[in-house]
Nucleic acid binder design. Structure first.
Lengths: 329, 329
DNA sequence: CCTGACCTTGACAACGTTGTCCATCTCTCG
DNA sequence: CGAGAGATGGACAACGTTGTCAAGGTCAGG
């Protein structure tokens, strides 16, 4: 910038004014400065700028894994909102590791991002209090923050599973299994709650073997399904608590002599190409990201003081075939 | 930092030394400073730091769309390499729009990223020359840069398609169709070249209707397939030039009375769950990202001066069923 | 007791920008 | 023609950090 000023024969501040398109500079001077900028290939250093303005126009996004289609869609939605507000996006994957989440968050804060969108991997976010007090707007998505009162945008997991189970019940099923992730994970616990509520709401008993919660490896899902299907009260339908479960279930069920109905939680690409096409309860990944990001920018634009909010987006049942299979005796 | 120094009763520079774990500070002083840091919740401002050190420890990644599984995987690989080098990652989606690509790249440069990984959307990257001369290491991935001599990491698109077509030929096919994207896109042109080479290499003629290049909407793919399958010399096999084509082809082919063999370019999730499972030529998305990022950091660590390099990663044929269907007369 | 080497510490400038404030110049109007 | 107003431009400090360098303190050896 110094060089530009020298070359154009004007003061430092005048160049700054031109760069920022501030008023009060003669068109003639503007032209001279712009020529110098062009000639020298000058580009403003935004980091130095931030030092004065205290706004970085960048936000940080921490999620579990960018490569996961669900988070990839969420990420894209956050990016679009950020772009609309003229902000850039730092992205980081926590890989479900609380330490990594904290590292990323603090690294973003050290870069002085204006705000954070976080998919929690940790269950204790007290480490964030000083940052939030220092003015870093923070919105949690997909799961609530731990021990911290902050904005959060969630899917109505329990409601979604309730709908899915109700759908199976409506198609005549009475013995319905549920396979979900470790109950320590908030979304998994919520989905289980939805299952229990739906069954209870229809006055249906839940068999001892009908629920399996734990790491959702193909092996464990296979084992759980085996138990459910071969016990004294074999299930005629399954609600799969996440994508990994759904995929394994499709494999197992397609090899069985008698059809078993299936509703998966979370949509996935090509679900409609399988045979039978898979009925799912779809979360609105872009919606989560968009809502969270919009909330973040509203906070940044003055809504800072208000009470933390909690938003729940509903999930949507998409019938495709596998969930409409009638019970086989 | 000033506050910390005051509270600990030491000089500014001493705090800086403690924060950066530099040698030459009494353990006693370190303890005092650390207590003050703790008490005040101090966090170093990395942006100010950069102003002095001229290293941001951050890199920019511009790709077509983070929500696309291929780029999501690439993105994750870049992130992992960046993390290993202690760098953070700015991500941006160009949405295949040259203007947006340039905006993103220049915004990253204004933030003074140490380096860039770019999946080109534009075909002219001369606007980047000043930045590169200013020291921003840049690596292009998936497609080469336009009018700019820079590092590039590619998939061997032509070779991959050659392998795919050869596979079909080896299974007895003589009339093979090819549907690809607009020939203006580098990867599409390369894949077409691979197809032609493979056919020529086997001394097979290419029918007038066997090649369709253009926007790969479901409608256009349906139309192209219809022509290929109903002409005087109907094809018995298809090489699908990208994922979108593959998916539409699966739908169309599954509804036909006689089986048609299919090899898709680019792997996709659940390809093995379809019936028949889809044989593909798989690109190594994480490999592209990893290689590009590693190259970037090698440049940053002193390899700066050397000649730009060009790396081609080979694609891998994964037989699953659809590509092994014999020709039906 | 003095000297010199070494260790610890702090003062100060610098990085590249913007905010504040004042100086100058050019009108316009009385 | 002079005064006031408005437009234009620039000097300087400040943002929060680190690099440079020199000051002071300690200790061992002569």
């Amino acid at each position: 910038m110094k060089d530009v000023a020298a070359r154009a024969g004007v003061g430092l501040k005048t160049v700054s004014r031109v760069v920022n398109e501030e008023a009060g500079v003669t068109p003639d001077t503007v032209a001279r400065v712009q020529a110098a900028i062009e000639a020298l290939g000058f580009r403003r250093n935004d980091s130095a700028r931030l030092l004065r303005t205290r706004r970085t126009s960048s936000i940080g996004l921490v999620l579990e894994d960018v490569a996961d289609p669900f988070y990839a869609a969420l990420s894209r939605a956050v990016e679009d909102v950020a772009r609309a507000h003229g902000a850039l996006l730092f992205t980081g994957s926590s890989a479900e590791d609380p330490r990594r989440e904290q590292e990323l968050v603090l690294a973003f804060c050290a870069r002085r991002v204006d705000g954070l969108v976080v998919v929690p991997a940790s269950d204790d976010h007290r480490y964030l209090s000083p940052e939030i007090e220092a003015g870093v707007a923070t919105v949690f998505v997909d799961r609530p923050a731990g021990h911290l009162d902050a904005d959060v945008v969630l899917t109505d997991n329990a409601g979604g599973v309730r709908d899915g189970v109700a759908h199976l019940i409506a198609h005549g099923h009475r013995r319905i299994g549920f396979i979900g992730d470790q109950p320590g994970i908030h979304t998994a616990a919520e989905r289980l709650r939805g299952y229990r509520e739906a069954m209870a709401g229809a006055n249906l008993p839940v068999g001892a073997d009908w629920i399996a919660m734990g790491p959702t490896t193909p092996e464990s899902v296979r084992a759980a399904l085996g138990t459910m299907l071969s016990g004294p009260e074999p299930v005629t339908a399954l609600l799969a608590g996440n994508n990994r479960v759904t995929v394994t279930a499709v494999r197992v069920l397609s090899g069985l002599p008698r059809p078993v109905a299936l509703v998966g939680f979370d949509d996935f690409e090509l679900a409609d190409l399988l045979s039978p096409p898979v009925t799912v309860v779809a979360q609105d990944a872009p919606g989560l990201g968009r809502t969270a990001a919009q909330l973040l920018f509203r906070r940044l634009d003055g809504m800072a003081g208000e009470e933390p909010s909690r938003t729940e987006l509903s999930a949507r049942l998409i019938p495709r075939g596998s969930g409409e299979i009638p019970p086989s005796p």
